[in-house]
């Protein structure tokens, strides 16, 4: 058996795949956080809870109504988006002109309430969600075994990230969004309904979190705490990539997932902290983040 620098390729590629999977979730979630921060100036601490909500909605649809994975992949993000519309209109819009600290505290509180509610209703033991039939099994690539569902997660996440990037950077609606991130008052004075645009942006960004939750459901158990376990790392990813950069969030998300995977191979003890070490270094060397604009 061939070995690379004393590591069996099975282990190396296996960890790289795990890293890509983690990276897919980092990318989807940090993308939403970056968009929300750019448009609303809010550090959305509820993002992890909304990811969890997406997974739970998929599980409940399956459990209570027998609705399967593919419809849930559309329906659950829509439910999360609707919840986001309510949050934005009833709460976040009221603190729009205040110090960003208020937004952070408010969304942190929302996260605690949502998680507490699901813990109360379903406990913390976790609920299994089946892998859809079409994505069962896997392929032996020779150097490693590739489970079909995991490949799907990476591809779906990449597609959604690139689609989001395209929508923001290359479409008319995206140009409104970018302009309103810079000078919301002026964009509104041109005749654009900016408050509606803000609500729509928040809804779309949290729908991405809900989508990530559905992707996660068959792989991890559906658990009320699944979001808070992930969100801290995702915040580190956003800090490293730089707030407000779309492509930066995607590249950093996948990149750090891979770095984490490699660390698991070469120095497993550091795997849980490597992202935070990188964050500390980036903050020292380039405080605006790797892709951040300093203006």
């Amino acid at each position: 058996m061939m070995e690379l620098i004393g590591i069996p390729p099975q282990a190396l590629f296996g960890q790289l795949l795990l890293g890509l999977i983690n990276g897919a979730f980092y990318a989807l979630l940090s993308l939403g956080l970056a968009v929300i921060f750019g448009m609303l100036g809010v550090i959305n601490f509820a993002h992890g809870a909304l990811y969890m909500l997406g997974a739970f909605v998929a599980w409940l649809l399956f459990q209570e109504l027998g609705v399967g994975y593919w419809p849930a992949l559309i329906l659950a993000p829509l439910v999360v988006a609707a919840f986001g519309v309510v949050l934005e209109r009833t709460m976040l819009s009221r603190i729009a002109k205040m110090d960003p600290l208020y937004g952070l505290l408010l969304t942190f509180g929302i996260a605690l309430v949502v998680e507490g509610l699901f813990r109360h209703l379903y406990g913390v033991s976790g609920q299994p969600y089946p892998v859809p039939d079409a994505l069962q099994g896997g392929t032996n690539l020779g150097f490693m075994y590739l489970p079909t569902y995991r490949a799907w997660v990476v591809v779906a996440s990449l597609a959604v990230c690139l689609g989001t990037w395209y929508a923001i950077e290359r479409t008319k609606l995206g140009s409104y969004l970018r302009a309103a991130t810079e000078k919301p008052q002026l964009v509104q004075a041109f005749g654009v309904n900016v408050p509606l645009l803000v609500t729509g942006t928040y809804a779309a960004a949290v729908a991405l979190a809900g989508f990530a939750g559905v992707l996660a459901a068959p792989m991890y158990q559906v658990n009320p705490l699944m979001g808070s376990n992930l969100i801290i790392v995702v915040f580190a990813v956003v800090v490293i990539g730089g707030m407000g950069s779309i492509l930066g969030a995607v590249i950093t998300g996948f990149g750090l997932g891979l770095v984490e995977g490699l660390t698991k191979v070469f120095y497993p003890e550091a795997a849980n902290i490597v992202i935070f070490v990188i964050m500390a270094i980036v903050l020292l060397v380039k405080p605006a983040g790797l892709f951040g604009r300093t203006t």
Binding site: S175, Y176, R178, A179, E182, G191, T295
Partner: peptide
């Protein structure tokens, strides 16, 4: 009020 994240053409086409 020129937008840095928009091209000249996008700036021109921005106001509805």
């Amino acid at each position: 009020g020129i937008f840095a994240s928009l091209s000249v053409e996008e700036n021109l086409m921005l106001p509805p």
